[in-house]
């Protein structure tokens, strides 16, 4: 339920294993093979980056809070688990998801605003009639089985930031990791608190996309896992590399240690955190190869060719 992630529809119906997710997507593509072959699309991560940018632009124009944008991104992800992307006009889906998310996150705006702003961003890709968004809303809600209440990692971050003495810089870094994770499959794979804790951990090390630093993270996580009661004989007091002279470095290590102790005492899914870390790293790597122009062309091609912009 709304306060309880464990009983939420998110955990019961919208959290998958990697295999399940791959299978669902395979099935979707199989059912539309001709379409898939006719309109090749770049890898999913790059699609996600593109959508993220586009929805971010729309959100900015309408002055929409990040929390609602994030909810919309999750809606889009869920929707495209059920519906083949080439059957839809992604610009319409994006606009509608944001319109719906704003109502759910209690910051609604008039449907007309969304259409007007979306049309000024993507002039020849969207119908001017608001009823198209209204219709797409039915489609979205129906595919999501009206399960619209979303649990986000932001809440965990807010409630834990003082426990870990996070600085504003660290909080901001964790926030940006959380924002970024909406471009990966992680929201469909892991509980929001697992993601939030991963983001906090990544915020505690400098330049998290540096591979040596990742080793530090993984080491901290593995150690925390071993230090759990009943697993291994660790004492929890070991410090990975305790010889730092730099004072700032020192506090940072202390924070990582405190964090590791917290994890060891908790029942948090540490393996999941390790996987989240790795997924995020490969996401950042993949991001470097992103080409906006190619992306835009490929999406617009099927939208135009199939006349999806006309209705």
């Amino acid at each position: 339920m709304a306060a309880n992630y464990w009983e939420s529809t998110q955990r019961r119906f919208w959290q998958f294993s990697k295999d399940e997710l791959a299978h669902m997507r395979d099935e979707l593509e199989k059912s539309d093979q001709a379409l898939v072959q006719m309109f090749p699309l770049p890898r999913r991560t790059h699609l996600n980056i593109y959508f993220n940018q586009q929805i971010g632009r729309l959100g900015k124009r309408l002055n929409i809070k990040q929390q609602a944008v994030a909810t919309a991104q999750l809606y889009i992800k869920r929707f495209y688990c059920k519906v083949e992307i080439r059957r839809t006009n992604p610009y319409l889906v994006l606009t509608t998801a944001l319109y719906l998310a704003c109502k759910m996150e209690e910051c609604p705006q008039h449907i007309r605003m969304f259409v007007t702003e979306a049309r000024s961003l993507w002039p020849d890709l969207l119908h001017a009639d608001v009823s198209r968004v209204g219709e797409c809303e039915f489609f979205l809600i129906s595919e999501m089985n009206s399960q619209l209440i979303v649990h986000q990692p932001y809440r965990t971050l807010t409630s834990l930031q003082s426990d870990f003495f996070l600085t504003q810089d660290e909080i901001n870094l964790a926030l940006s990791v959380i924002n970024d994770h909406y471009m990966t499959d992680l929201p469909l794979l892991y509980a929001p608190h697992t993601i939030a804790l991963t983001a906090i951990l990544l915020s505690l090390i400098p330049r998290p996309n540096n591979s040596t630093n990742i080793a530090v993270v993984t080491a901290a996580l593995t150690q925390a896992q071993q230090n759990r009661p009943g697993t291994g004989t660790g004492t929890g007091q070991n410090t990975p590399g305790a010889s730092e002279k730099d004072k700032q470095q020192d506090t940072r290590m202390n924070k990582i240690q405190r964090f590791a102790v917290f994890l060891a005492e908790s029942t948090v899914d540490i393996e999941g955190m390790i996987d989240c870390t790795q997924e995020l790293i490969s996401f950042y790597e993949c991001h470097e190869q992103y080409n906006d122009k190619i992306m835009r062309e490929q999406v617009n091609r099927f939208v135009k060719a199939r006349g999806l912009d006309k209705h």
Partner: peptide, 21 residues
Amino acid sequence: VQYSGISQSAVREMALCSELS
């Protein structure tokens, strides 16, 4: 009848009722 966007109150009721038990 035209699609004109679902009222916020209907959206809330649908979402809450789907979640509550």
